[in-house]
Design a protein around this nucleic acid. Sequence first.
DNA 1: CGCATTGTATACTGATCGGTATATTATCTG
DNA 2: CAGATAATATACCGATCAGTATACAATGCG
Lengths: 196, 196
Amino acid sequence: MAGRPRQFDKDSTLKQALDVFLEKGYEGSSLDDLCTAMGITRPSLYKAYGNKEALFLAALSTYRDRFIEQVKAILESESNGKQAIRQLLTWIDNEHTAEETPTGCLVVNSGIICNEGYPQIADKIAILHDQRENILFERLKRAHEEGQLKADTDPRALAQYINGILQGIAVLARGQRKPEVIHNIVALANLTLDQV
Amino acid sequence: MAGRPRQFDKDSTLKQALDVFLEKGYEGSSLDDLCTAMGITRPSLYKAYGNKEALFLAALSTYRDRFIEQVKAILESESNGKQAIRQLLTWIDNEHTAEETPTGCLVVNSGIICNEGYPQIADKIAILHDQRENILFERLKRAHEEGQLKADTDPRALAQYINGILQGIAVLARGQRKPEVIHNIVALANLTLDQV
DNA sequence: CGCATTGTATACTGATCGGTATATTATCTG
DNA sequence: CAGATAATATACCGATCAGTATACAATGCG
């Protein structure tokens, strides 16, 4: 038998929680912060999501889904694999320099803090890192097979390199650095792509 | 008139505090954690360092000093600027893959967490980031002037790129990733250096 | 309507946080 | 030794943390 219906939209409150986590990090986001931003009270939050860690994991999942969806779309938008990676770098550049608030990347930010003391989060972060690398790898492997990369280029190593570039950019975007810095990094990463 | 002498070595306890901050981050390191690792009690810590934030800033300074000293030595160990950067990348690689505990880089780790809520720390982190970039820039500028880089290469942009690579590696080193990943990134960054 | 069910609001819990007041201990000076 | 000074140890402070017990409000079903 159904009782009183939930008086908020679970997806939109989750999105609001995600914004808080992005800005303040996992430990830095208190339940007061979260409840205020989500416009609900603590018992409602716990009924809907379980606890703080489960809420974070749920937010992390939506973040991952959004991110991977966009990355896949970009990687498939170009028939040339190398060109697809260049598009990805440009997109990441815009993504991290357009916004006002320097939030960086939730996966990178959380991976730095939560590797100890929060095993569930650490495990999930590790999986997300692997997923990212693998998406890049799959696309580059195809490019390699299609002869768009040099024969002696290792698609796995190249995927790890691009992934590393993305993480370096995420760190810089978290600070209040000038957008120019990220532009320059992307430009030089593109130089690398000329050689593989 | 001197009273009771301090019963611990301020430098060595600072080093122990640094290890805690490296492992657990600023917010994640409680005073109990710090006092236990340092082998002193809270009042002693406050007498010697002021408070938690001042202790962290002091630890950050020693970390900076150690880091910059080593970087400068490496950058000056080679007469060729490009070769010096390659040495630096190799050193960073060893540094982040040799140790057992994945600590990453204190500047990178702290910059991600403390950019809001701890203005003093955020300011210092920003300065340290600039210092790092400038050390790389100075060396690359010299290399440029000595004709070791292409005429149209911008030493500033290249310094920012290398700095970004170092930060990406620091993120990866913080996780429990395979050393192979960092090796591959360094190898591809070296490819970039062939082109500048 | 009456009842079961489920979400919401208020107010609270024990634990832990950074920081400190008080008292004691150890040193230097005279 | 006596007194001044400074570091130590114990025990505590208010604030905040994540999480919850209790009471109330809103729905569906009969």
